[in-house]
Amino acid sequence: MSRTARLIGTVLGVGYVRPAPGTWGSLIALPWAWLLHVLGGFPLLCLAVVAAFFKGWWATGVMTKGAADHDPSEIVVDEVVGQWIALLPLSYAAWSMGISVLVMWPGWIAAFVLFRLFDIWKPGPVGWADRRADALGVMLDDVIAGVFAALGVLVLAGLYHGVM
């Protein structure tokens, strides 16, 4: 197996941390999202999501080629991508309003909790993607869980700010 694929798939070895490597992958995504946002705002975080998705898809394919388990727990790059997607509404709001993204710390907590909830529960299309049993499915279930979490963050923000 390619060393590069292993480094990408396990997010520099975070996937080997036990227990709950998916949760650790989601947690490590938080400071990286903050750094990407500080360095380049919403546009850089969006580019990072796309780049990490395609690199993760490749790495997952390499790591699972010929294996019985299509989604081994040490692959956590999918959690990073999904968590970053869940944080996109916060990044956009901070970037467009010129405020610190950390001001919205309750949104960070909501994004983390909602993403983990949808990633573990796997409702509807999240479960469909997971059942694909291929490298694309490994990535897509977390992308969809991230989109659900992002929508949840938007709804909670709307409720909190009296927009809804």
Score class of each variant (00 low, 15 high):
A111T: 13
L117R: 04
W24V: 14
L114W: 11
K55F: 13
A94T: 04
K122E: 06
H70V: 10
L35T: 14
R132W: 11
A93W: 01
F112C: 07
W24M: 15
L90T: 07
V76I: 12
E79I: 12
L30P: 00
L39K: 08
V80I: 11
W34V: 01
F53P: 00
I85A: 13
A86I: 04
P43H: 06
V50L: 15
L47F: 08
W24P: 03
P31D: 07
A86W: 12
V49P: 00
D78S: 09
L36I: 06
F115P: 02
A51H: 01
V113D: 02
P125M: 09
L30N: 00
A110L: 10
I28L: 14
I120H: 04
P43Q: 10
L47C: 14
A129H: 00
W57L: 15
K65F: 03
V77M: 11
L102S: 14
A48R: 01
I28T: 14
G56Q: 05
A59D: 04
G61M: 07
Q83S: 06
A111M: 09
E74K: 02
V77P: 02
K65L: 10
D78T: 05
L114N: 08
A94L: 05
L45Q: 05
F54C: 09
A52G: 02
A59S: 10
Q83N: 07
I120T: 10
G98H: 10
L36P: 02
V50Q: 06
G98T: 12
I28V: 15
F118T: 09
V126F: 03
L47S: 12
W95Y: 15
V38F: 04
T64R: 00
G40V: 04
G107W: 00
F42I: 06
L27Y: 05
F115M: 08
I109M: 13
